[in-house]
Amino acid sequence: MTSRAPDEKTGRIVVVTGAGAGVGRAVADEFARAGYDVAMLSREPDRLSRAAAQLRGYGVRVLAIPTDVADAQAVEAAAARVENELGPIGVWVNVAMATVFAPVSALCARDVERATQVTYLGQVYGTMAALSRMRRHHGGAIVNVGSALASRSVPLQAAYCGAKFAVRGFTDSLRSEILHDGLDVHLSLVDLPAINTPQFDWSANRTGKRARPVAPVYQPEVAARAIRFAAEHRRRTLWLGWSTARAIAADLLAPGLVDRYLARAGYCGQLTDEPRANDAPDNLHAPVPGDFGAHGRFDNEARSAGVPLFTERHARAFKGGVALGLLGLFGMALLGALRPAGPRS
């Protein structure tokens, strides 16, 4: 399989799911600034329409398609419309997500089902719709958005973490199939840290307190730049930020200790002391109207620069270093066990 950046024929049209707000909104803006024609998929039609009007100011074509990514037929119809109205899809970015902040004991089956449908199956349906067209057009790039929480789960987000683990498994399986078939379609997985988006105000929440991202927090534009980099430079894997790398390393080195640490700190790190209003918005089962943008309420602490990117090359070296460290610890323990016992007093 050859490896080349998207060309002028198929590479300048991008589809972004979850494009009405948050990271998806920032991703759509990032690609539009770079001269791509953009198709924006999201549930809330008014917000999507306003966002599309803003992006047209960059002089590109923008198509706003109200879509629930949990509906496979709706995603397929949206992909067909993009190709009919804009042309061959060169890049498809799966960003849409939904979550619920709650301990498992407070979840109901309907909540878990919906979070899984949007966060996991939404990426599956988007990938399938893009892949079938990129097969015909002989090229393209698909970016699935993962999370540090796909390597190290945290309390209060079991539904979301489970869905992101599933995204990683699906993506890895598909990569081998693409290689087997000799397709010039590149598949990237970008794992994000905590991002300052509206999700902490409008996600379902059964805790009674307002949610917050676990520090350090990054601006959505940082994630958007990383996602475009992965698409244009055909990176297999990309970890964004030291916090993502640390979470993965900690779980490799001492998962039991991390379990205990999160039992102590995982709740307070994700919840504020402010009570959550009974009438607070909840977008799990229906979109929340309003003029939300890419940013949430954490601009005062979110970082916008100096964020490291770890590609698959760095990730391999990083994991290799962790493996060598584990091997060294094992060797020291083994030598200790085999060393003859000293004289007894």
Rank of each mutant, 00 (worst) to 15 (best):
E113L: 13
A102P: 05
T116K: 07
F101L: 14
A129P: 01
S105R: 13
V100P: 10
L149S: 12
A98C: 08
H138E: 15
R110Q: 10
L149H: 08
G146I: 02
Q117L: 14
V118H: 08
G140A: 02
E113R: 13
H138Y: 10
S105Q: 09
L121Y: 14
H137N: 14
M128Q: 15
N144V: 02
S132W: 10
V100W: 11
R133M: 00
A148H: 06
S105H: 08
V145E: 03
L107T: 11
A98L: 11
S147Q: 01
T127M: 14
S147W: 00
A141C: 13
T119C: 10
S132K: 15
D111R: 04
Q123L: 08
G140Q: 01
T119W: 06
A130W: 01
T99V: 10
S147K: 00
S105D: 12
I142A: 09
L131H: 09
T116Q: 14
A102R: 06
L131M: 09
A115W: 05
G139A: 05
P103F: 03
V104K: 06
V124H: 07
A106Y: 08
G126I: 04
H137D: 12
L149A: 13
A130P: 02
G146W: 00
G126S: 05
V104P: 04
L131S: 05
G122D: 03
V124M: 04
S105L: 11
F101P: 07
M134I: 00
D111I: 02
L107P: 08
Q123I: 04
P103L: 04
Y120V: 06
L107N: 11
Y125S: 04
T99A: 12
G139P: 02
A148K: 12
A141I: 09
G122F: 03
L121R: 13
R135C: 03
Y125T: 00
V112L: 14
L131K: 07
Y125C: 02
G140V: 01
T116V: 12
A109C: 04
R136N: 12
L121N: 11
G146P: 02
Q123D: 06
A109V: 10
T119N: 12
A98V: 05
C108S: 13
M134V: 02
G140E: 01
T119M: 09
G122Y: 03
V112M: 15
A129W: 02
A148I: 07
R136Q: 15
M128T: 09
H137V: 13
A141Y: 04
L149N: 11
L107H: 10
L131V: 06
A109P: 03
T116R: 13
R136M: 14
Y120G: 07
